[in-house]
Design a protein around this nucleic acid. Structure first.
Lengths: 212, 212
DNA sequence: TTCCCCAAACAACATATGTGAATTCGGATT
DNA sequence: AATCCGAATTCACATATGTTGTTTGGGGAA
């Protein structure tokens, strides 16, 4: 029954392109993603757009909000999203004690960003795409959402361009090259990686490095 | 007297290029920077290098370590560094209660990284340099280390290249352009910004945005 | 002062990626 | 089955940035 749902912990839904949070507006709560993808981004005044974070099932969106921050960049749903809303106002002491997975989520996000800086700053288009696809596959795998060497990938080539700092045209070109080389199979929002080791090499990821 | 220094909170010094922390090695503690600059970075196997964080006086290096993480990227001193070492093993509850500035440092670092992603992904060379110089000036100003419109900037053009994802040659070229346009004065490790508003515009920072 | 060395500055040329536009494809809707 | 519309694909061309190499400059050591 509806009345049995705890009043401060709701299930919420978003449609593609719907805002989950707006810049500098107090969000209704933290969202624990249950299903679907979302992203954080910034657009410059002339329309250039860069995605700065991707939220997949299992991720918290956004840990910072529990530390008293307001969103500094907007967040939108990329697909249909189902999430559990949990209030921001949890005292940080309680969070630390009761939600280790929450802290892990925060720090993981930071480390992913640090790796992402390397990708945007120093990797070529082919390396960026390889790195992105590996990271997404690995995150899906860790959430139990990968099947063998494949997983869902509900992004348009324009989304991928805004993630990798490239143009959609160049994403397309480079994807073609990768297909030709047998590095990936990618069609109708479905990703298959025939040879993970080969793709890691194409991404300029050193043997010892973690992808994420 | 030496004997009066608390045993778990030491003053430490580093020389330029000296490692403050190595990848995957337990650091001796957190460092609260008192003087000098340091950076975190990653190098790809062929030598390409990207700096992913800059530590200025007042910054904590690295908040994550208090959350049970090991360094995932090495950290080196860029100048002579003086810092206060504080043990990592502080229980997170105590940190939360007694060190709000510590949490601020952590979240500020995350937000800076998110902004930095936009810069590396979507801004031109001139915009990247403008953004970097504005951010550094603003951070120095907030630490009381700016004097009017100027502050120290102890970076080589190669450091700046590794921060902005450009080549040293192009950094030089672009800096010349900026000097010609009167956007910055930069010589012998000293930065002067004649017109902050003009530089913000050159950085493609929207009026409302924070630099950091 | 002289020497030395690293950083900065400069030049010519190469190339990865961007731009603008047209065409094709594929899934949804009627 | 016919239509529609966003996404993907392809093409020709433009340009920002990279590459390689040389030259100049300035501060520290002897």
């Amino acid at each position: 029954m509806l009345s049995q749902i705890a009043p401060d912990e709701d299930l919420v839904f978003f449609r593609p392109h719907e805002f989950i949070a707006r810049e500098s507006e107090q969000p209704a709560g933290l969202y624990h993603m249950l299903e679907g993808w979302a992203c954080r981004y910034r657009t410059l005044s002339d329309g250039r757009r860069q995605i700065t974070a991707l939220y997949l099932p299992g991720d918290y969106c956004e840990p910072h909000w529990a530390l008293g921050r307001m969103p500094s960049q907007p967040i939108v749903a990329l697909t249909n999203v189902r999430a559990k809303r949990v209030p921001c106002q949890v005292p940080s002491g309680a969070l630390a004690d009761h939600q280790p997975s929450f802290w892990k989520s925060l720090v993981d996000g930071c480390e992913r960003q640090a790796n992402w800086l390397v990708t945007l700053g120093r990797r070529t288009a082919l390396e960026r795409l390889s790195h992105l696809l590996l990271e997404l596959f690995e995150r899906m795998r860790q959430s139990g959402l990968a099947y063998g060497q494949q997983c869902a990938l509900p992004l348009t080539q324009m989304d991928i361009a805004d993630l990798t700092g490239l143009t959609p045209v160049h994403v397309n070109r480079t994807l073609q090259t990768m297909r030709t080389k047998g590095l990936v199979e990618l069609q109708s929002k479905w990703l298959r990686i025939p040879d993970v080791a080969a793709l890691r090499q194409a991404a300029a990821i050193s043997q010892a490095d973690a992808v994420i």
